[in-house]
Write a protein that binds this DNA or RNA. Structure first.
Lengths: 123, 123, 123, 123
DNA sequence: GTGGTCTAGACCACA
DNA sequence: GTGGTCTAGACCACG
């Protein structure tokens, strides 16, 4: 899999983040089947209980549906996926703004800095 | 107390980042003395060798000056500090833009998303 | 066997010098693999950490390239090697001239002394 | 005193070198009194026996004279001092030529390299 | 006291 | 197997 889980954040939350990203980026499409609990546990190198918790939590968020005897699937509900996207965007922006303020910039300076960067990049 | 180190990034690099931030934010001013290798090691809860490496790297970047038998000091060179600031800002923006593009946004969408966020925040 | 290290100059710097010489003299050719950290440590009779530091420094000077899991290799960049050669020559001459001046000789005397020596040697 | 004795070369020979240099550079003048064996031993941080051997050896080379009850003095004989000077010069040149040949240069190249350096320096 | 080097031995990621 | 990081504890030179 590559990365292991270092952070103090619970592993099941880290895996949730990972799956969220995959959905938002379209690597996991609506209705697509996720690996079984056991298989995912092996892929991630963690205990199956951890994956179970991950899936349960994802279901509670309506991001996946579990069908007895069939497996776990990404929701068909486009709304949920769209929300997820905007949620991730939001936390990313939030983090960015917080970081920039830590560096001592004010709102308008942050905006200008981003614009300058995007201008440069266009060239 | 002293925070622990989560990420897979080497500890000495994380400490370098931390010190960079402190300088940029003015918590460490030009010419100011850093804690001794041993003291900082205790503060950070790491081995003195790790701090030694941190300080050596920082010196190589001209961010600090070390004077044998005296200690380690933030550079007097204002230029270096200014460069550091713009460097940190730049890498932060770069990371942000890259992340947002990963989520499928284009330049103008990123810009608008930020503006919207800052507007919301003002209220 | 492996020679011991006399001078007060740090061992890792002495080993760097040694490798520089080997490259300049063509004993180590461009692209050639250096002994692994552990093997070199045994050859030199020092701790692997010391060799690690040596290789890290050499990489920073662009004299070697390291490839994780593969080993450390002399750079393919002929320019770097050429620079290294002239650099070593220069520092050697500089040292020599400085020493001779310490003994009270002037430029033209140093030159004549060398010529005399080379004449004698030819015979 | 500053430097300690690291090299594998016997300490008494290292001290002899040191005194030779001091004489050649005029820091010790002809007829001047050297420190007593005991005092020099303390200055150098070595055993008095080692200094005794040093002085004996220096006397054998006619570089110093020992006068019972008075101490040890640099020879009055200008010839000896002159010889010493040329001897040191010689070994310095020898070392230099050897080093340059190690770098793959031939006699005429060494000569030209020195000339070029001295030209540059003059400016 | 300061920073700098070194050893010993461990664990990690990558291939 | 490779290089890279980290800890533990030692010794050094400088001031």
């Amino acid at each position: 899999m590559g990365e292991k889980f270092h952070s103090s954040k619970p592993i099941y939350l880290q895996i949730i983040d990972k799956i969220h990203y995959q959905i938002v980026r379209g690597e996991l499409r609506k209705g697509e089947k996720l690996p079984s609990v056991r298989e995912m546990a092996i892929q991630m190198g963690v205990n199956p209980n951890t994956i179970q918790r991950t899936y349960t939590e994802l279901e509670r968020m309506n991001v996946v549906e579990t069908r007895r005897g069939q497996g776990t699937f990404v929701t068909e509900n486009q709304m949920v996926i769209a929300d997820l996207t905007s949620q991730l965007q939001h936390s990313m922006i939030e983090q960015f703004v917080w970081n920039m303020k830590e560096l001592g910039l004010q709102a308008h300076e942050i905006k200008r800095a981003l614009e300058t960067y995007l201008e440069e990049e266009k060239k």
